[in-house]
């Protein structure tokens, strides 16, 4: 589904990703761990197409297409979802407006009929319920005044509504209380655990991986994947830290 080959990328002229390769097949969950500043969020932004995060070498194929050639919105329509480490606040646009606009833009790009207001609300309410998010929050401006945990829950509601093929979730577990962690973990499994979907979980902690069991765990350090293992690698890293040699 996702094939990253020797990817290099820079921010403001500084190389952050230094030849990163990673292959994710449909049906798989991959966890990416690594020290602060290693380039994990940068990887997410480069895959999402954020301006300023400039690929300088290598290739990324997503669902058979050259991902790096696509506009950000086209990547979303092709089935890529980026869960933000720091979800953005947008005053003046309600969650409902934002998500209906997003979903219908994606549907139009795929040649599908847009959902009516009523159809969309039904879908949005069902996803909010499933994630334990108060219906009232759908009407509020996007993330404005939301707590850290509420923002992350909102990311998952968005993922549920948009129904992507590949979700890159950047520290979706940070800032969550115990109940929210469980709700988010179950949400990821419910929405993304399917033979035709895949997940890239960026995290610092084992606790989310207790809910969403990864098939592979990678260490991203200084812009490269330096180690890859099974679920046991995450336990080992949590015990021993990143400093220990393989």
């Amino acid at each position: 589904m996702l094939d990253i080959q020797d990817l290099r990328a820079e921010i403001a002229g500084k190389e952050i990703l230094k030849g990163l390769s990673l292959r994710v097949n449909a049906g798989e969950v991959h966890a990416i761990m690594g020290p602060n500043g290693a380039g994990k969020s940068t990887l997410g932004y480069v895959l999402g197409g954020r301006p300023g995060y400039t690929p300088t070498g290598g290739s990324v194929t997503f669902a058979g297409a050259d991902l790096l050639e696509m506009d950000p919105h086209a990547r979303a329509a092709a089935g890529l979802f980026l869960g933000f480490q720091y979800p953005v606040e947008i005053p003046g646009i309600s969650n409902v407006q934002f998500l209906r606009e997003a979903l219908n833009s994606q549907r139009r790009a795929r040649g599908e009929a847009p959902l009516s207001g009523g159809e969309f609300l039904k879908l949005a309410r069902a996803q909010a319920d499933a994630l334990g998010m108060d219906q009232e929050m759908l009407k509020r401006p996007v993330n404005v005044g939301f707590s850290g945990g509420e923002k992350k829950r909102n990311e998952m509601v968005q993922m549920g509504i948009l129904g992507p093929k590949l979700a890159i979730l950047d520290e979706t577990d940070s800032g969550l209380d115990i109940d929210a962690l469980k709700a988010v973990g179950e949400g990821i499994n419910r929405i993304m655990r399917a033979p035709d979907k895949a997940v890239l979980l960026i995290t610092h902690y084992q606790r989310l991986l207790d809910y969403v069991q990864p098939d592979f765990v990678h260490v991203l350090d200084a812009g490269r994947i330096t180690r890859t293992g099974g679920p046991e690698l995450a336990h080992q890293l949590e015990r021993e830290g990143y400093g220990v040699a393989a």
Binding site: G48, P51, L82, I93
Partner: peptide, 19 residues
């Protein structure tokens, strides 16, 4: 905010208009 909207599927011109 502009990238957030785009990353959810909204084309750039439309995202600018919404903001």
């Amino acid at each position: 905010a502009l990238f957030y909207l785009q990353s959810r599927g909204v084309p750039e011109a439309r995202a600018k208009a919404l903001l």
